[in-house]
Amino acid sequence: MIFLVLIVYAVLILYEFIPLYKQKQWPEFAANAVLGVLSLTVAILLSVEVKIPSPSKPISNVITSVFGK
């Protein structure tokens, strides 16, 4: 699973980052890199089946405590 993820991301880098790098669009490159690293991390975590906490739980707890059920 994790290898599949890595391969897909390698292809994405070839497809996306290299053109941006060549055209010297640095802000885009930076933003994309940040997002890319984030999504890669999440993808790897998902593929090794780490449980990532969801933000809906705390949000719903806050709202039910304020407005009631």
Binding site: E16, L20, E28, N32
Partner: peptide, 10 residues
């Protein structure tokens, strides 16, 4: 950014 398109995939 000048264009939003490059970040769509991520």
């Amino acid at each position: 950014l000048t264009d939003y398109k490059p970040i769509v995939i991520q």
